[in-house]
Design a protein around this nucleic acid. Structure first.
Lengths: 229, 229
DNA sequence: TTTGACGACCGACCGTCGGTCTGTATAATG
DNA sequence: CATTATACAGACCGACGGTCGGTCGTCAAA
């Protein structure tokens, strides 16, 4: 096989791109290093020149995804005109696209990430994004507490709980999608809308806000996701 | 090697016991089938006579653990004299011992289950116990709603959220333990006590109860756990 | 232009692991 | 006692993650 030399960074990212595509397609365990090097067009030695183990791929990929996510909400954090409540609502709207860009992609990501064979992948992504988002959310909640809008003893603990709450809703969405036949599409949309709304109420109550202060998803989002394909 | 024949059930449980011990010690991936059969004193063929794959061990073990857990709370569910609030408090007190019996065991389980190499094991146990406990908690919450004590639109969704909330506290406990040097033991105990208390408040608010209605851990439990070894 | 050192890369090879298969000893059945 | 079914033994296999000695492109110094 011909030898193609590139800069270490370029090659690393190529490998990461290829591996990420395969992991999301088949899952981590079901993707072999040979699969990755075949996709990238590189040799075994070349791969292990850039990564010390297959496991490294997971760490690098999840770190990259988490970093992308935090970039996506930066402007909301940096806008000094926003109140804590506005900031939190904006944060929720944006962070929904942590693993997505728009509704169809959101749906596609769900179809893939929540399959049993992708358990490890999912857990790593989740843990990484929580670790990255926790300080961000903590600052927002602390601001709200300072403003006297949020009633909560420990902003950091509250932040973590809110993030886990998000994850639990994701689980529910995934289960609903999986259990859904095309005939019950309307029922599924209804159920998920209620679930999102309930999550908003729960977050309101945790933060000591009046019910309905926070919006998890804008109207029509659930339908857009569920009918996408 | 001499051939020892036992009933299928006995042998199955022996294998499960040995595998469980190893999984909790080294993690799932780092435990090989050869390790298991060496510990149990059985051959490869014998193992695959009772289990079709290594993966089966995970399913069987988590199912067993989840079943034990539900047995442990049955009397609370069956006692008709209890109000929903009493039942819920009792449930919380009992279900803390899902993966434990007393404080030292609780601590030991934490030291082990939350290590990175046990990620798969942890996730499976967690998912299984949530799946088992969800209907149970749902009934309790529905009762409370009927009694007019709990203010919550969807008991099932609330049950799921409460269970995830528990898991998120477990995460926090594990991280605190891991980050704890012996010098900061008191600070860690303090932090965790506050965290448990906050979890109680969060649950109160989710269910529309006055703050302080639910108790996650009895006084002194945190200290007992953290000083155990 | 030559040289030489360094880093990117190759691919044969290795040990281990999950799983299979053939065969055998024991228990159940008639 | 004959036969069938069940529990088990252990040699074996292919695939996988990872290693290693070596090769080749690149670029700077001579």
């Amino acid at each position: 096989m011909p030898r193609v030399v590139k800069s270490a960074d370029d090659r690393r990212n190529e490998i990461l791109d290829g591996a990420q595509a395969l992991f999301f397609e088949r899952g981590y365990e079901r993707t072999t290093v040979n699969d990755v090097i075949a996709k990238v067009g590189i040799s075994k030695g070349g791969f292990y020149h850039h990564f010390t183990a297959k496991e490294d791929l997971l760490e690098a990929i999840t770190a990259r995804l988490a970093q992308d996510a935090v970039v996506r909400v930066r402007d909301i954090l940096d806008d000094p005109a926003l109140s804590a409540l506005e900031r939190l609502n904006g944060f929720m709207a944006r962070s929904r696209s942590m693993k997505l860009a728009d509704a169809p992609k959101f749906r596609a990501a769900f179809d893939v990430v929540f399959r049993p064979e992708n358990l490890v992948l999912y857990h790593r992504i989740n843990a990484a994004s929580i670790a990255v988002m926790r300080p961000v959310l903590t600052r927002i909640i602390a601001q709200g507490k300072a403003e006297g809008v949020f009633t909560v003893p420990d902003p950091e603990a509250a932040a973590e709980i809110l993030l886990h709450l998000n994850a639990s809703t994701h689980d529910a969405v995934a289960r609903t999608i999986e259990a859904m036949g095309t005939s019950e599409e309307e029922a599924a949309i209804e159920a998920l809308d209620q679930r999102f709304q309930f999550q908003g109420i729960v977050m309101d109550r945790i933060l000591g806000l009046p019910d309905g202060s926070l919006t998890i998803v804008e109207p029509g989002f659930t339908r857009a996701v569920m009918t996408a394909r």
